[in-house]
Design a protein around this nucleic acid. Structure first.
Lengths: 218, 218
DNA sequence: TAGATTGTTAATCGATTAACAATC
DNA sequence: TAGATTGTTAATCGATTAACAATC
């Protein structure tokens, strides 16, 4: 069993492999090669083989990877083979959207509690989950063994929510608010801010129109 | 003026710098050093200086960077100093959430048209934007000079929507559907799938509970 | 067997960091 | 002037890719 530290880049590709493998499984494809995967995912086949080899010998020389078996293995790697409870704070549109994915992520990972600071929202239902007041957060996290927290509140409130998550003993946070959060280093934090994606997309558009004249050089 | 190809990693950090600089500006901070920025954003100061230096000499030795000036420059780099129209397909919860950000991204980048394949949704309003049928997409893209498309439809429909965007002449796509899309290489595509973030977050949680016994070695 | 494809080592490529002269 | 901080070059680090023996 390897004890090499596996890089973040590798870990982040695992869910991508899983996604496509699930697609193949639904299409009843039995076997896939690193070649095939690379073509579809725009990745180098050698990289895919290397990524998977960090975790074990999942393929068969001359044959490729058994789709079902590889799915099972990646699910184990990502710990999706065991229940994992998630809490969400911020019952706005984005919070709603994420709760809807609950069914999609039919996996063992599930949003089991939704909180909001706005008292008007308390008690309203999101997919048969009643919105709870923030005062319940601490209690619910221990009672339901919640290990991951999702933040979908406005940027100004995000750090505050993060603090409450940390105090409640959450282990990982997925932050959708467009702001950098400070948490103790034992808490893992992932940033899911799409404004970053959107703004960097704009960079790659061709300049046009305004290129008619060139005022100062600057 | 440098003609060096600027790496994607560098471009992706620009919106992060901008985000924090805007915060500083609101707090009326005049000047910031790469040291300060690095501390706050968990980045190496040398990296920040190098990133910025790709685009010009924005700082003053011994002093640091003028916050307002740097904001202006990064906005130019990301082309946020000119109007940029965006279309969104998929008027679900996620689509709603993104439209709400319209006011947040008060910038020149704006969602100016929303489409949905579901006829029941046509004509309903999202923030005073009427939801339009897909048949209008092509026309609206040219009429409103829309250059970026956002996809917030279920995975199965995503490729189809992408194709329509491409045909309409869109230049960049931000895809929220959890699937890989194929587009001609002149169209830039960014992936904003948070399931990837969420699943990779699970990887980093401590193993617990199930570690009580060790069945087979495998 | 011949063809295919893995797992892995070595080579390459690119990105991050350290260091420091220039200068405010 | 002395202290601070940039812009940039050189050194380091890490990730990707090529190549190939092992083997199904």
């Amino acid at each position: 069993m390897k004890q090499i530290k596996i890089s973040e880049a590798v870990v982040r590709r695992m869910p991508i492999y899983l996604q496509y493998l699930n697609e193949l499984h639904k299409r009843e494809v039995q076997t896939v090669s690193s070649q095939d995967l690379g073509q579809k995912l725009d990745l180098n086949p050698a990289q895919i083989r290397k990524d998977l080899a960090y975790f074990g010998e999942f393929g068969r020389k001359g044959v490729g990877y058994d789709v079902s078996y590889l799915i099972e293995k990646i699910r184990q790697i990502l710990k999706l083979d065991q229940p994992l409870n998630v809490a969400l704070v911020g019952a706005g549109n984005l919070g709603h959207a994420l709760c809807n994915y609950n069914t999609y992520i039919k996996d063992n990972m599930k949003i089991v509690a939704v909180f909001d600071a706005n008292l008007a929202k308390i008690g309203t239902k999101i997919n048969n989950l009643a919105v709870l007041p923030m005062s319940e957060l601490n209690k619910m996290v221990s009672e339901l063994n919640i290990r991951i927290g999702i933040i979908t509140v406005p940027a100004i409130e995000a750090q505050n929510v993060a603090n409450q998550f940390v105090e409640a003993g959450i282990e990982g946070i997925l932050n959708f608010a467009p702001t950098i959060l400070k948490v103790p280093e034992e808490v893992r934090i992932h940033h899911a801010d799409f404004t970053t994606e959107l703004l960097s997309l704009a960079y790659y558009l061709e300049n046009e129109g305004e290129k008619m004249y060139e005022p100062t050089m600057d």
